[in-house]
């Protein structure tokens, strides 16, 4: 009995430790975001001040709101675009037997693991060639490089596991492949598309390297670049309060989304083996 109590206590201590380590840094960011002046430089564990000045500072700058808009637009269009192409492509890859299918799937998987830096100079040239430098289209185009292979891969895995029978009746009725996709598969695919779309959206929302390289003016920045380049009155002074307020503003919606779609995301992650 004593051993059992000891073991259970140890187990719950481990649980509490896991939760504290996971949650504390973000909690501390929230605390800091509500502090101003000298209070900010005084490390504390419990809330000591409550001021909205940092949030006012962030939101009063038009540039930050603008970059939230940019990020929403870029991530939204990228994901819609990727899903549109992925639905038909993954039907072909999952349900039709043709020569070279294995090789094609392998290539798609390999592209999704590309180091972004390996295409950076080529993409930089391409973006300039198309006259897209410093515009949202530069990022929509370049983000396809990771959202498209990922959505195709996950949707293919998902579609492959659906039974043959659901298609057979439609084939016997003489339905064309296009009709089969839109009438038979699309209604079944919605849940998988929501999950994949959300994961691809998070990927595009968080992307940093391309956004840093392909935009130059403050109005064209996405959220990660805007946060990375937030500066204070002088070069030496880092405005920690405002940075934390901006961070909290862009992270809370993400956390809420992730928690709502928790179960589905875990399933999607294990199916696609997606990057973190």
């Amino acid at each position: 009995m004593e051993r059992y109590v000891f073991k259970t206590t140890l187990f719950y201590m481990a649980v509490v430790l896991i939760v504290i380590v996971a949650v504390y840094p973000f909690y501390y960011a929230i605390l800091t975001s509500f502090e101003t002046g000298t209070a900010i430089f005084n490390p504390n564990v419990l809330p000591e001040a409550f001021s909205l000045a940092n949030y006012q500072a962030v939101l009063s700058k038009g540039a930050f709101i603008r970059s939230v808009g940019n990020s929403l637009l870029i991530a939204g269009v990228t994901v819609a675009f990727a899903l549109l192409m992925a639905v038909t492509a993954s039907y072909a890859l999952a349900r039709v037997r043709f020569r070279g299918r294995g090789l094609l799937l392998m290539t798609i998987l390999a592209v999704s693991m590309f180091p972004q830096i390996a295409v950076l100079s080529g993409l930089y040239e391409l973006v300039n060639l198309f006259g897209l430098y410093n515009s949202p289209f530069a990022l929509i185009l370049s983000y396809t490089i990771f959202t498209l292979p990922f959505t195709v891969w996950v949707l293919t895995t998902f579609m492959r596991d659906l039974p043959v029978e659901i298609e057979e009746a439609a084939i016997v009725d003489g339905a064309t492949p296009w009709v089969i996709i839109t009438r038979v598969f699309l209604p079944l695919l919605w849940p998988a598309m929501v999950t994949t779309g959300l994961l691809a959206f998070i990927g595009a929302w968080n992307e940093f390297l391309f956004a840093l390289t392909f935009t130059i003016s403050e109005t064209q920045r996405t959220v990660p670049v805007a946060i990375a380049l937030l500066s204070g009155a002088s070069q030496q002074e880092i405005p920690w309060g405002t940075i934390m307020a901006a961070s909290v503003l862009v992270t809370v919606p993400l956390i809420v989304l992730v928690l709502i779609f928790q179960r589905k995301i875990v399933a999607g992650l294990t199916a696609g083996g997606v990057k973190g």
């Binding site: 973000f26 501390y28 973190g276």
Partner: peptide, 15 residues
Amino acid sequence: ILIPWAIPTVVSARM
């Protein structure tokens, strides 16, 4: 434990 994963890398670097 999903929270650290959901936070953008730029934000966790700053945090």
